[in-house]
Measured scan of single mutants.
Amino acid sequence: ITIHVNGVTYHFDNPEEAEKFAQKMAKTYQLKMEIHNGEFHME
């Protein structure tokens, strides 16, 4: 699972971890999250 946050790329093997991380980042930084081709993009 690949997550892009403001141009920084994070890779996770565990989908649950990826989702937790994505939600935490979105909440902490008030980010808008989109999913493209199974990759999370946040800005």
Rank of each mutant, 00 (worst) to 15 (best):
H11V: 08
Y10M: 03
E16T: 09
I1R: 05
H11G: 03
N14E: 07
I35W: 09
K24G: 05
F21H: 01
F21C: 14
K24M: 13
E39S: 06
E16K: 10
H4E: 03
T28M: 12
Y10T: 01
Y10R: 01
E39P: 05
K32I: 14
G38N: 06
E19Q: 10
P15I: 12
I35Q: 06
A26E: 13
K24Q: 13
T2N: 11
E17H: 06
E19S: 08
L31F: 08
N14M: 07
H41Q: 04
A26P: 01
E39M: 06
H11A: 06
K24W: 15
H36V: 13
K32F: 13
A18E: 00
F40A: 04
D13K: 10
K24P: 00
M42G: 03
G7Q: 06
N14A: 06
H4N: 06
Q23S: 09
T28R: 12
G7T: 05
E43M: 15
H4V: 06
D13Y: 12
E17C: 14
D13S: 10
K20D: 11
F40Q: 04
F21L: 01
V5L: 06
N6M: 15
K27E: 15
G38W: 03
H11I: 07
L31T: 04
G38K: 03
M42C: 06
I1E: 01
V5A: 06
I3D: 01
F12W: 02
K20F: 07
A22D: 00
G7H: 08
H36W: 10
H4Q: 04
G38T: 03
Q30Y: 10
A22F: 02
H41N: 02
Q30L: 05
A22M: 09
H41G: 03
L31W: 03
I1T: 06
M33R: 00
I3A: 02
G38R: 02
F40C: 15
F21I: 01
Q30M: 04
Q30F: 08
K24E: 15
K24I: 13
A26D: 13
A18W: 03
I3F: 06
E19F: 14
M33Y: 11
E43T: 15
Y10L: 04
F12A: 00
T9G: 10
F40S: 03
K27G: 07
K27A: 14
G7V: 14
E43N: 11
N6G: 09
N14L: 09
V5N: 01
V8C: 15
T2V: 09
T28C: 15
T28G: 04
E17M: 09
Y10G: 00
L31D: 13
I1H: 04
